[in-house]
């Protein structure tokens, strides 16, 4: 209880502190920070490698959205499962994946999580419960419901988190999935990462309700809106939803209001939003800087300790890129591997 104890010394009492400072140990709080840095530096590293022609295809960066991925995953255990999106690097790392094997995947190498077959858009790590990013907007929603059906029928005790973007809430699959999760009271948590845009189309132009969470009412489940750039708020909502799911009380829809700093993908003229809007989010609402400020304010870490975390993250990133570079390429003979489970 050292984290709580330490915070208590500073504040005199803990009851007024935000949720995570009451709920988690100091090590867990610092690990969450470390992972948020890892997500950001991973994506910056991947972006650099892409620019230098080391990675092909395209990628969707979640820089600016790290608190949403991390906060949602904090209450989860390794056995819990997630379905992710095309903007899924953060989910993958928050759920416990190793960045070196993610880099290797982006480099198309055999040591990558998908043996070089999937790339950024299909990144997955089944061993830590990540059932995969998805190239199809809304594709993961019914799959998460199916995973939750398994959890319920086999009484595994797992909960399933389904990440999706604001854009996905206009796909039929969203509505069908929420309805089934509700009628069958499944242990699934729908997490909408609302970054304001589906590609170029703002939610105001694409969505008939003001908040995606408003749609929860149509499927008789709680709809919770949080500031997706405040780690504690996200983790608190996730914690409640996880408890509800584990109790057998069914699904929750959480909407994290957040923002992506980068363009939609690697081909975006950014004509649908202003530079002022982007700058405002980056300067005033950055999730990592806000969390670091709190850690210092509540006496949980010193700025030197935060600096040390950033340094160790950088080392892990550099080692990860090196691992990817020196890993072997798949052989052409293996093109048809794994099309089926039992090879002919």
């Amino acid at each position: 209880m050292s984290g709580r104890a330490q915070a208590m010394q500073v504040e005199g009492e803990t009851s007024n502190l935000p949720f995570i400072y009451r709920q988690y140990e100091r090590e867990q709080l610092l690990d969450a920070l470390r992972k948020m840095h890892l997500i950001r530096r991973f994506e910056e590293g991947a972006e650099e490698c892409y620019m230098r022609g080391l990675i092909h295809g395209t990628m969707h960066l979640s820089i600016g959205q790290e608190a949403s991925a991390m906060g949602i995953c904090m209450p989860l255990v390794n056995e819990d499962q997630i379905t992710s999106t095309h903007r899924g690097h953060g989910h993958c790392i928050a759920k416990g994946a190793e960045v070196k094997r993610m880099f290797a995947e982006f480099f198309g190498k055999t040591t990558g999580y998908c043996a070089g077959r999937g790339g950024s858009m299909h990144i997955a790590d089944v061993s830590t419960g990540n059932l995969g990013a998805n190239g199809i907007v809304g594709g993961g929603l019914p799959i998460a419901v199916g995973a939750a059906l398994t959890a319920k029928r086999l009484r595994t005790g797992k909960v399933v988190v389904c990440f999706f973007g604001d854009g996905a809430n206009n796909e039929g699959a969203f509505h069908e999935a929420l309805n089934m999760a509700a009628i069958w009271k499944l242990p699934v948590i729908f997490v909408c990462e609302n970054n304001g845009y589906g590609m170029s189309t703002s939610t105001a132009r694409s969505t008939a309700v003001a908040n995606v969470a408003d749609r929860a009412a149509a499927y008789s489940m709680p709809g919770v809106i949080v500031d997706g750039n405040v780690l504690s708020e996200v983790a608190e909502a996730s914690h409640e939803a996880v408890e509800r799911a584990r109790r057998g009380d069914g699904p929750t829809l959480i909407e994290c209001k957040t923002y992506r700093y980068r363009g939609h993908s690697k081909s975006d003229r950014n004509r649908y939003r202003t530079k002022d809007e982007i700058d405002d989010w980056m300067t005033n609402r950055d999730p990592i800087r806000r969390y670091e400020a709190q850690l210092i304010e509540f006496g949980i870490a010193t700025s030197d300790e935060l600096e040390a975390i950033r340094g160790s993250v950088q080392q892990e990133i550099d080692a990860g890129i090196e691992f990817a570079k020196t890993s072997p390429m798949p052989s052409i003979d293996g093109l048809a591997d794994n099309v089926y489970t039992l090879e002919a």
Binding site: G108, G116, R117, G119, H122, M329, P330, G334, L335, A336
Partner: peptide, 16 residues
């Protein structure tokens, strides 16, 4: 096209 999904790795992709 080969009897596979299209793979990500550029060499495999060409071979498909």
């Amino acid at each position: 096209g080969s009897e596979t999904p299209i793979p990500y790795n550029p060499e495999l992709e060409k071979a498909a």
